[in-house]
Amino acid sequence: MLDFLARLLGRESPGSKNIAKERLRLVLIHDRADISPQLLQLLKNEIVAVISKYMEIDDKGLEVSLEHVDKQVALVANIPIRKMKRVANI
């Protein structure tokens, strides 16, 4: 059915609808999870602080985001490690 609809109307095109769709996708993730970008930033800072106690991380390559799969939202963190610490720095 959806393929049929896609053929009917949804030919991939460079039009502005793709921008709309992508923006909506991001906005709805936050709306549905009820979490603001500021809150996500705070969360990110704390995650970095905790993990930094145990390992040296590359905070430039760090990514923390909410992703939407079916009807669920997942918190996905990609944290590149430079090296492990031998002694906890607490």
């Binding site: 609809l5 109307l9 949804g10 030919r11 460079p14 039009g15 502005s16 609808k17 769709k21 996708r25």
Partner: peptide, 12 residues
Amino acid sequence: GDMMTLEDMHDI
């Protein structure tokens, strides 16, 4: 390509 399709709306 300047308005979302039915499929796009269903996806979202």
